[in-house]
C-alpha cells in the first residue's frame, strides 16, 4: 500500500478493478495543503468506499443523501465558521478545506439544485464531479451526462433506437453562470494537468468546481486495463476538451496537436458498438459534428476574452 497516496483514501475499497475515480480522489486531495473534510453524494464512490463496518476514508467524511452533497457541505462549512468565530472549537482554529465529491447522477441531475444553491451562496468549498456518464452504481441507467448515441439500460440500442437520443447537458456553462472564481474540466489520464487544476481550485476562497472524466470499465464495456488509454483518447478526439475558467476567462489548458477522429474513441467501448453499422452512420457523423462544434465554441470563447 502506497503510504503517500493513501493519506486520505486508503486501499481496501471495493471499487471495480480498473475504475477511474480512486486516482482522481487521491490526485485532488493530494494537493490539499490544509486538512480536508469530505462530503459525498450517493454514488459509486460513496458505496464502494464505505462498506460497513469499514471505511476507506482517513479524513472526516460525511454522507447524507443523493441530492444534497453540496447542501451538506454548506452546512458543515458554515457550522465550522461559526464555531470558529465563537471560539468553541476544541482543536483550535485549524484551517480546513471542504471538498464535496459527486458522480454525474448526483451532480448533473439529482444534486443540481443543491449545488446551484451552494455555489450562489458562496460557501468556501470545492465541488468535484467525477463524470462516468451514467448511473453506473445501479447498472448503467442514462443520466443527463450520458453522451448522444450511447446505449444504456434505459436507452437500449436496437431496431427501434440507436441509444440515447438527447445531447449531453453542458454543466460547465451552468456552473459558470454562478460567477464562481474557478472551474475547470480535467481528465484522470492527464495527471499533471489535473493536479494543477486541483491546486488552483483548492486555493480559491469561496466555491470552486472541477469536472473530471472518469471512465467506467463495467458499463462503458471495455477491458479493466484500459481506463487511462480511453481517457487519453477522449481528449485527443476533442470529446472531452481540457479547459478552465478563471475569474470568467476561458483557457484551453491542453490542445491536442493532431485531433483524432471521434471513431477512435467510440470503437474502444461496447456502449458505442451498435453505432458501427451502416444504419447508424448518421449518428456517428452527428456525434463528430457535436464534438467539433463544441470545441470551436470553446476556442471562440477563449478568443473573445483576450
Amino acid at each position: 500500500m502506497n503510504k503517500e497516496l493513501t493519506k486520505y483514501l486508503s486501499s481496501g475499497h471495493s471499487a471495480c478493478a480498473g475504475c477511474g475515480f480512486p486516482a482522481i480522489v487521491r490526485a485532488i486531495l493530494g494537493e490539499a495543503k490544509d486538512e480536508v473534510v469530505v462530503a459525498n453524494a450517493t454514488g459509486c464512490l460513496e458505496v464502494t468506499s464505505t462498506l460497513y463496518p469499514y471505511t476507506a476514508w482517513k479524513t472526516p467524511w460525511i454522507h447524507n443523501a443523493f441530492e444534497n452533497a453540496a447542501a451538506t457541505m454548506s452546512g458543515v462549512e458554515r457550522a465550522y465558521a461559526i464555531l470558529k468565530r465563537k471560539n468553541k472549537l476544541p482543536g483550535g482554529d485549524k484551517k480546513i478545506k471542504f471538498v464535496a465529491f459527486g458522480g454525474d447522477g448526483g451532480t448533473y441531475d439529482i444534486g443540481l439544485q443543491s449545488l446551484s444553491g451552494a455555489l450562489e451562496r458562496g460557501h468556501n468549498f470545492l465541488y468535484v464531479l467525477y463524470d462516468n456518464e451514467g448511473y453506473m452504481n445501479t447498472g448503467n441507467q442514462r443520466s443527463s451526462a450520458t453522451p448522444y448515441g450511447a446505449a444504456t439500460e434505459t436507452t437500449p440500442a436496437g431496431r427501434a433506437s440507436f441509444g440515447k437520443t438527447e445531447m449531453r447537458k453542458n454543466l460547465m456553462d451552468i456552473v459558470n453562470a454562478h460567477h464562481i472564481k474557478y472551474l475547470a474540466q480535467a481528465n484522470v489520464a492527464y495527471m499533471a494537468d489535473l493536479k494543477k487544476k486541483a491546486q488552483k481550485a483548492l486555493a480559491v476562497e469561496g466555491p470552486s468546481f472541477l469536472s473530471v472524466f472518469s471512465p467506467c470499465t463495467n458499463n462503458w464495456k471495455f477491458p479493466t486495463s484500459q481506463y487511462v488509454a480511453i481517457a487519453i483518447l477522449a481528449t485527443e478526439t476533442n470529446f472531452w476538451p481540457l479547459y478552465e475558467v478563471e475569474n470568467g476567462k476561458h483557457k484551453i489548458t491542453l490542445e491536442p496537436k493532431n485531433v483524432k477522429p471521434l471513431t477512435d474513441f467510440l470503437k474502444t467501448q461496447g456502449r458505442f458498438k451498435h453505432l458501427f453499422s451502416e444504419k447508424n452512420k448518421p449518428v456517428i457523423d452527428r456525434m463528430q459534428r457535436i464534438a467539433n462544434e463544441e470545441f470551436a465554441r470553446l476556442v471562440s470563447l477563449t478568443e473573445k476574452e483576450i
Binding site: 500500500m1 502506497n2 486501499s11 475504475c19 470499465t217 479493466t224
Partner: peptide
C-alpha cells in the same frame, strides 16, 4: 486504483494484498 504500487529502491513494487489485477 488501489494505490498498491510503491517505489522500493527506485523500482515499482506491488502490494498483492490489495491489487485487484486490473492491469492498468
Amino acid at each position: 486504483p488501489e494505490a498498491s504500487i510503491e517505489m522500493k529502491d527506485g523500482k515499482a513494487d506491488i502490494d498483492y494484498d490489495y491489487c485487484k489485477g486490473c492491469g492498468v
